[in-house]
């Protein structure tokens, strides 16, 4: 659930997945399916996206999501990764 938790903090970030869709992250679920608003694509390359303003993308079709570094706390993210790793190896942190 780390990445679900992570992406929840990224509402309103510009994202790009492999078909290069840029938009504002509006919502995300635990499968990392995402919903983008204000969608922009390379119209010349993907003319069928011209009219798309808002799009749901199945998580499994995503290769990359490029993020804005200013909205990510990488140290916290590393800690979160560690906590998750610890939890799954049985060395769980009980408190907050």
């Amino acid at each position: 659930m780390l990445f679900f938790s992570f992406f929840k903090t990224l509402v309103d970030q510009e994202l790009k997945n492999d078909v290069k869709i840029t938009g504002t992250l509006r919502s995300i679920d635990q499968y990392l399916n995402i919903k983008l608003d204000n969608v922009q694509t390379d119209v010349a390359k993907y003319p069928h996206f011209v009219a798309v303003r808002s799009v749901f993308i199945r998580g499994s079709t995503i290769r990359y999501i490029h993020l804005n570094p200013n909205s990510v706390d990488t140290n916290l993210l590393q800690d979160a990764s560690r906590r998750e790793a610890m939890a799954s190896s049985g060395d769980k942190i009980v408190g907050r």
Partner: peptide
């Protein structure tokens, strides 16, 4: 624990942009 990043991030950044639409959207999520 599962939501550690989000929870802590929220606390650390709670003062920012309280009134914007983003905030609302975040709250919703």
């Amino acid at each position: 624990n599962e939501d550690f990043y989000c929870q802590v991030y929220k606390v650390l950044n709670s003062s920012v942009e309280e009134n914007s639409m983003n905030y609302l959207a975040k709250k919703y999520l």
